[in-house]
Design a protein around this nucleic acid. Structure first.
Lengths: 193, 193
DNA sequence: ATAGTTTTTGACCAAATAGTATAAAATGGC
DNA sequence: GCCATTTTATACTATTTGGTCAAAAACTAT
């Protein structure tokens, strides 16, 4: 293909866009915010991504791919799959960067914000939470197969875990400290041990 | 006091404002939305409530007073206080108006949306979720006193219940059907029976 | 009655919004 | 070197935003 090449790295600018959509939400993020975070000019942004909405869709898709394929790999690699799940929740309760508490879950935020604003975007966020649920189910199934867990049905427990995920990502804003979150988590995971 | 009287009922217009702030969120609700919902002119709105932000604060305060004083009364009146709590959650899973599923929890929504937008409003919403937690604790304490529940500590279980509340109010947007939500709820409340 | 006070009405305003347009410079395949 | 494309930078646009204001209307106290 002829013509000048892109000078920015798509992966990088998408991560930068993710960061600001995540912290400020969809509607409250302005194009100026995005331009500043991504170090692009308006022309480049609109040429490359079309609109704020389609950029957001790219961001959702890009971020989910990152985070879920990693989690999937971890579950497949581990011989203690539920430990992977527990570690995920532990990271939520005690993140490396405490500012994460204010951000909550990107998908959960999107679902809450967009429900009555943009049904299409909401649907896509819901889909991602269901992907997470499926990964929980995968871990549960593997634990059952390995006889590390004695439950008959894994569908409800998987939903129980997404629900826990949804909850803790709101509750962490009420109580952004490990000492407050861990007892809740411990009590919640007890039922699966 | 001299001067023209208000022609609108404050309670009524606050309820109307609640409805639209709840469904659309704080930022996405425009003054025009509010004027239409409250059947007021701009001047009246700003004369009576000062600003969009202070109206929102009034709405938060007004709605919380309504809903929490009612719940408090129920807990005090009941000789099976945990049944009051369970009914609250049952209503969430199977509301009279199914459109409620899309709305989630007013305070939880506010916390999620406003965390990085307006710290003051976020704090007020967090405070209300903590009020709910205190009511859960009150019910738990009463159940313990009545020997209907055999637990030592009620603080963690109360937080477990707010966390369940926060979770189910997001999860209900993923699964806006009783048959999906009830098994999650049953599994979650099992630990307290 | 009338003076004083408050509410209502609807026009008005400045700032911000997402997105477009333009034109020149940069870059690369052919 | 020609052509296609992206980048940069700036200007522009149409709409929407939260909020103000002046004047009319409604009411109370004296």
């Amino acid at each position: 293909m002829a013509g000048r090449h892109r000078t920015f790295d798509e992966d990088t600018v998408l991560r930068q866009a993710t960061e600001i959509f995540w912290t400020k939400g969809y509607e409250s993020t302005t194009t100026e915010d995005l331009l500043a975070a991504m170090h692009l000019n308006k022309g480049s942004l609109y040429n490359a991504f079309g609109s704020k909405k389609s950029l957001f869709q790219r961001v959702v898709s890009h971020y989910s791919q990152q985070v879920f394929s990693d989690l999937d790999r971890q579950i497949e690699a581990s011989d203690q799959p539920m430990e992977v799940v527990r570690n995920l929740f532990r990271e939520v309760c005690d993140p490396e960067d405490p500012a994460q508490h204010l951000k909550g879950c990107f998908f959960g935020n999107a679902v809450s914000e967009l429900a009555s604003i943009d049904g299409e975007l909401e649907k896509q966020a819901i889909e991602k939470l269901k992907t997470l649920e499926n990964l929980f189910k995968k871990a549960l199934d593997k634990a059952v197969a390995l006889k590390q867990l004695a439950i008959q049905n894994t569908e409800i427990p998987a939903r129980y875990l997404v629900n826990l995920w949804n909850g803790i990502n709101v509750t962490r804003r009420m109580y952004p400290h490990r000492k407050d979150l861990e007892p809740i988590l411990k009590m919640s995971l007890q039922i699966l041990s």
